[in-house]
Design a protein around this nucleic acid. Structure first.
Lengths: 181, 181
DNA sequence: GGAGTTCTGGACCAATTGGTCAATATTTCG
DNA sequence: CGAAATATTGACCAATTGGTCCAGAACTCC
């Protein structure tokens, strides 16, 4: 997974894969079939492991709005880490475009992220933290998109100040949606 | 350029390049040096040609805020076009990560986009269309990031409804920044 | 313990990769 | 026109690609 994450599908050769996994080639083909199947499994594995914290944090007890803000705040750190390699789901979307098997996985994880945001936002709304008129569904999709944009820029290298500014705007948006509570 | 745009760097072979450009292999190497150099030139060419409209629209006379909104509106159409292939600058960022030569080009174009947004927003602010307290610099970076997120999702396939909802949130953000004018 | 199954390592393979060469065609220009 | 330079064609090349084969090691289970 790490190898694909760092270099993408095409740029990751079998030797590198073997080295990263510490197993021989035949074992690899025994266990996964071929390179593509291995990638698909790695991709799905990435989604379940890397996004677990996000889902849990958004579902954590307490203020739904605070949970959303907490996730945004961690994005700043994550995306500006010196060795940040982007988000494998985003990377795969770019590399494979509309490949059916790939989009099936990426869309599943994206939908899950949106759903977690949505649940948290709904909770916030029900608790009076957000105006009833707020379109929380759109907001959830928006936040997911913003995350992808951040991950993308982070892969190319993103300064902390810039990431913080961008997330700050999103925070302001939440402020505005909360203003009339 | 189209070939790289559609399939990325690694997935685009010399035969495909020749076919797309309608020239023989040697002519190609004569004119550009090697595949990588050709890509770098295609990438830069993409940036200057594809973003021209955006720069012009943002710099158009009249309301700066309206210009920004107009650009956002076109994003919805662009990104949900049936044959949308993403943004080559974004794709290159993903595929090459922190490759110096590539990021030099992508960052230049990203900076230009942010600058155009910033200029339009400043104009809007000066004209009283936005609250003086609005952090227009952050807003410009934010909008650029959102665009990248949209382009990313669009490459995988994005419904019009979803794109419209996401852009709608950004529009609402502009509303909020204009509210107290 | 040992037969049978599974797994592992490394040699091997066809196909494709980016890139080059040299001969030919084309243009340029005195 | 005709010589010099430029550009095009397609054959060619070494290296790498993903993938397979097979012999032997390891494990399982009666």
């Amino acid at each position: 997974m790490r190898a694909f994450w760092a270099h993408g599908y095409e740029r990751t050769g079998l030797p590198e894969l073997q080295a990263a996994m510490g197993i021989g080639r035949q074992s690899l083909y025994n266990a996964f079939g071929d390179k593509r199947a291995l990638f698909l499994e790695a991709l799905d594995h990435y989604g379940t492991t890397q996004f677990r914290w996000l889902h849990e944090r958004l579902a954590a007890p307490g203020s739904g709005l605070a949970n959303v803000r907490a996730v945004l705040a961690t994005w700043v750190d994550a995306v500006t880490a010196r060795d940040f390699r982007g988000c494998l789901v985003c990377n795969a979307t770019v590399e494979f475009g509309r490949d059916r098997e790939v989009t099936a996985i990426t869309e599943r994880h994206n939908a899950a992220i949106e759903a977690s945001f949505l649940a948290a936002l709904r909770r916030a709304q029900a608790a009076g933290e957000l105006r009833p008129s707020t379109d929380v569904a759109a907001l959830a999709q928006f936040l997911a998109t913003l995350g992808q944009g951040l991950a993308l820029q982070g892969r190319g290298g993103l300064s902390r100040a810039k990431a913080a500014a961008i997330v700050g705007v999103a925070d302001g948006l939440l402020d505005a949606a909360a203003a009339g509570r």
